[in-house]
Amino acid sequence: MSSLTLPPQTPATARNRRLLEVLGAVAIAGTYIYLVLNQPADITGGPGSASALIALSGFLVGAVLLIIGVLPTLPVSTLVLIPVALVLNIVLGQFVGSTLVPFYLDAIGTVLIAVLAGPAAGAATGALSSIIWSFFNPTVLPFAAGAALIGCLAGLAARYGLFRRFYLAPVAGFLTGIVGGVVSAPVAAFVFGGTSGLATGAIVSAFRSMGDSLLAAITKQALISDPMDKAIVFTLVAVLVYALPRRTRLQFPFVRQYRVLAGTASNHPGNQPTGHSTGQDA
């Protein structure tokens, strides 16, 4: 029974896509482990580009495999939200950056999609965000894997109910930030030889002056900045999601199925049965 509007999903194509997702994750994890194990040989010997190339190609290949694996499986209603998320990443990031606090806050859209549409959509959005943003700013391209990881973790946090209690969202963000910072640090160290911002650069300088290796200093800086940054982003996303009208929130099957937000299904069991999907996806 083939649908007119959706590509046919045979078990073989589903298996291939799962394989691509796993390969992407393996590429990212393998690159990170290789970089961390091999770092002392390279960093002081000048801008040794072997590590930079490995970081770039490994993380990029992983991110692209994730996109190829996930993008065709997303329903159109989620797909049309991805550009919105990318624009939010860029515009709100700049806007908040100029009015609120000196953080980067460039993942609001990614986390929002992850909360509304799940870990796979979040990972694809994070990777796509870096790739498309690199049309204006090529320096974000190497961070595609880190952004994908943050989207995936945010989706998992939403799935296991961390957005149901408002005070748990910053905690989830903090933990996500730790993982994201640790994974992004080798990119900053090997590709950029430092950080791109002056404020974060000052923190790295402080650790360097105590005699840390570059990767250690950047990892420590990331462990200071990223958890705070992601805790703020998760809180802002929780503010935004709870400010959305019920009708808009419940449009998303992921939100209904896993009861991501407090009071979405349980308070009104008669109104919105969980399995009753009349959305635009079917």
């Binding site: 791109s196 002056l198 650069g201």
Partner: peptide, 19 residues
Amino acid sequence: ILVPLVLSLLALHGLFFPE
């Protein structure tokens, strides 16, 4: 993109390079 990046690199490695 490049001005903050280059300034940050110069300040970081120009002033603190334990190696």
